[in-house]
Design a protein around this nucleic acid. Structure first.
Lengths: 209, 209
DNA sequence: GTCTATAACCTGATAGAC
DNA sequence: GTCTATCAGGTTATAGAC
């Protein structure tokens, strides 16, 4: 039998993935995890802290892997800027690895940008913002002909590709009439990478003089 | 003094934009709208119906304008496929017009793809799926060298650009360190269009033989 | 660490007076 | 159409026994 704490996290992750944070009560979590209601407040202090732990458990390894990947790339290329497609690999591939480990994170993580929940906002500044800054810096070196706001916009939109595909994967089969499978993570990442690479390579709206 | 029904819709829209559906209670809505609690159940039958009305009010004009725009383009080009950037205009520009009328729809509409709420699912099949099918058809004519799933994937990702930018606009200023303003709808659409056009123009991963 | 019991409160919906 | 009052049920969080 696994740890109580981990069983709570697993159940919460599944339920938040399917119904969102607010629609997931501690009671449904503890019922599904087959633990006592009070165990949540013992192991985590509050629901907000539990939600934070759910996100943090998945996002931390992803973001650590991203930064390590990018560091390695920059070491390889020395003073040369890292090619755009390699930066995209560093950003997207670690997500793939984590999805393989826990498929339900697609819907949990995908929704993080949209959910105006307080416990999510914390994750945003703690885990996401520093990684964004690091990648933005690398991108600016690779795309020196673009103005800085334009680079940031494109990075932001690239995140949107991933967030959207992950967050609304469940709709793809229906809307596409069976043409595309949103749960095929391999295909999803390939499509996203191709799209993002082209997006970054577009001519600047206002090229630097 | 405006209509009671409309005041409820306005308040609900603002609150859902800021806090999401589940975190918005009928009581906060009626308080902010300065109407009686029971008025909601009189004018709408339930909270779900109210939520549906909130979304439908904004999405219907947007999608009608999109279809009309696309019809007009196809008439103009006769048997020739419509160029990709014009299809993108037809898809993105009507949103711009609606944002100008009601800025809070950025956050409301942006989140529609992520929110696993039942009353949202209805909107999805009723208002969004038919428009997706129509645009997908036009895109397949314009991009005959791409396999059909690939066209659909790219359309889906183009929607993601818009959804993400609209849904998490509030974060942009912070994360970019003041570099980009997510509430500048004009700039947002320009960046999205440039990115999407490049994405669609990328070489196919599996070109048709 | 795990349980029961309960406090204190908020929720959507409705019946019935005006 | 608009109000008050209320119902029946849900919520998080905690105190205290084991």
């Amino acid at each position: 039998m696994i740890d109580t704490k981990e069983r709570i996290l697993d159940a919460a992750e599944r339920l938040i993935a399917d119904h969102g944070i607010d629609a997931t009560s501690l009671r449904t979590i503890t019922t599904q995890a087959k633990v006592n209601l009070a165990a949540v407040n013992y192991h985590f202090q509050s629901k907000d802290e539990l939600v934070h732990a759910v996100y943090s458990r998945r996002l931390r390894p992803i973001n650590e892997a991203r930064l390590a990947y990018l560091d390695q790339l920059e070491k390889q290329h020395g003073k040369q800027p890292v090619p755009i497609e390699k930066i995209l690999d560093a950003f997207y591939d670690p997500v793939m690895a984590e999805i393989a480990r826990a498929p339900s994170i697609t819907r949990v993580v995908g929704r993080i940008y949209m959910d105006p929940h307080p416990s999510v906002d914390r994750i945003f500044t703690e885990e996401i913002a520093p990684v964004a800054a690091r990648f933005n810096h690398a991108l600016c070196r690779t795309l020196p002909h673009l103005k800085r706001p334009e680079v940031f916009w494109r990075m932001y939109l690239s995140v949107g590709l991933l967030a959207h595909a992950m967050g609304s994967a469940r709709n793809m089969m229906n809307v596409s009439g069976g043409l595309c499978d949103g749960n095929d993570a391999q295909e999803m990442l390939a499509q996203i990478k191709a799209f993002a690479k082209a997006g970054f390579s577009a001519p600047g709206r206002q090229e630097k003089s």
